[in-house]
């Protein structure tokens, strides 16, 4: 017997087996064709026809459902890719803009009919001071300038509010400061209200008869100065404000 490559021989035999199989099919079809006329006369049971009709209907439904599911999966995948790409692009844009990264101080003023509401929206940092009243608080603000004749009198520390009193004979200037999370109501009914600048920060000057009030936000807190000195003097006091630490 001739010695050949075993793999080649195996392939050859498989091709031959296939040829035999195909020849068998030809023989089989030949037999079926020979009996064609006999088969034509056969009555297939109605129940078999009914069964096939139901089977085919269910098969078509399941094929359509499968195709629909595959389509939805492909679409969901595409949508997910697009959303992911959008999020990536938006994130890159957002974090590259400096103004969004840096916290900016802003004052939100809402003028109501009787009261003006002042709320702190954001915060800024403060500097150290020279004159420091002795107050049992970690941090607080105080004016370095006082009009002639005025001296520091006393304080009221109400935890969320700190009041500093400065007196001159029978006149008093009250300096109030509160946390930036709180909101203060100021009586502006019948008063003249003007916007003022206090060391680069916007404030409100409210004058009602001879009483002057200045309200602004600085040093992480809402600040309020109230007294019977002139507008100019009150503004000088406000602009001299310092923080203890």
């Amino acid at each position: 017997m001739k010695e050949n490559n075993p793999n080649t021989n195996k392939e050859l035999m498989e091709i031959y087996y296939k040829a035999i199989g195909e020849a068998y099919i030809e023989n089989l079809i030949g037999t079926l064709e020979a009996n064609k006329e006999t088969y034509r006369t056969i009555e297939v049971p109605e129940s078999l026809d009914k069964w096939f009709h139901e089977y085919n209907k269910n098969l078509e439904k399941s094929i359509k459902k499968k195709a629909f599911t595959q389509r939805m999966r492909r679409r969901s995948f595409r949508v997910a890719l697009i959303v992911a790409a959008l999020i990536t692009v938006l994130s890159v844009i957002t974090f590259s803009v400096e103004s969004i990264r840096t916290r900016v101080f802003n004052m939100f003023i809402e003028n109501k009919e009787k009261y003006t509401e002042i709320q702190v929206i954001d915060e800024i940092s403060a500097d150290n001071s020279i004159y420091v009243p002795q107050i049992n608080r970690e941090s607080y603000c105080y004016p370095e300038y006082l009009p002639k004749g005025y001296t520091y009198s006393h304080l009221d520390d109400l935890s969320s509010m700190l009041y500093l009193y400065y007196v001159n004979d029978n006149k008093t200037i009250i300096f109030a400061q509160s946390d930036s999370n709180s909101s203060n109501q100021i009586d502006t009914e019948g008063a003249e209200v003007a916007e003022v600048d206090i060391n680069g920060v916007k404030g409100l000057l409210i004058q009602k008869e001879d009483r002057v009030m200045i309200a602004w936000v600085d040093f992480d807190r809402i600040l309020n100065l109230k007294g019977y000195a002139s507008k100019e003097e009150m503004l000088k006091i406000a602009r001299s404000l310092k923080k203890n630490n």
Partner: peptide
Amino acid sequence: LYSKELFA
């Protein structure tokens, strides 16, 4: 096509 012959 084939139900009759298969049944047969």
